[in-house]
């Protein structure tokens, strides 16, 4: 793309200088230079905002993993146990639980542990729970 600010979907001049405030060199003063820098800057911000959701989820998973390993349970087993237990608490809430409510988090882990126990033949044949 041509990096020019004079086009459809262009950035207004005031905003260009507002964003370019504090940049290095002539980029903060000259519109022609500032426009290019600001376009790149805003473009990065735009895509990073999308990326932030993924990163946050990764962060939550990391923390849940560490917290559940304290109880001797893997993250993957925890999540599949919660799925089997039909629980819908998401990663964000689990992470907050692990940080602020250790007792309740342990209850959740215990529930997942219980669900991940190997099924005996009797319980596998027992259809009353459906």
């Amino acid at each position: 793309m041509l990096l020019s600010a004079v086009r459809f979907g262009r950035i207004p001049r005031e905003i260009v200088f507002a964003v370019a405030k504090g940049m290095y060199g002539r980029s903060k003063r000259c519109f022609k230079l500032a426009a290019v820098r600001v376009m790149k800057e805003l473009n990065h911000m735009y895509w990073l905002r999308k990326k932030r959701r993924k990163q946050m989820r990764i962060l939550w998973i990391t923390r849940i993993n560490a917290a559940s390993r304290e109880h001797g349970f893997l993250y993957s087993r925890l999540i599949s146990g919660l799925t089997r237990a039909n629980m819908a608490v998401d990663r964000k809430s689990l992470c907050i639980l692990a940080e602020t409510e250790p007792a309740s988090f342990k209850c959740v882990v215990d529930e997942a542990k219980r669900m991940m126990k190997r099924e005996t033949l009797e319980s596998a044949r027992n259809l009353s729970r459906f």
């Binding site: 793309m1 086009r7 979907g9």
Partner: peptide, 16 residues
Amino acid sequence: EMLAFWYKPRRKQSHF
């Protein structure tokens, strides 16, 4: 207010 501006290289379109 969030400023949203995006473009993709070598494409003649941008959105602000």
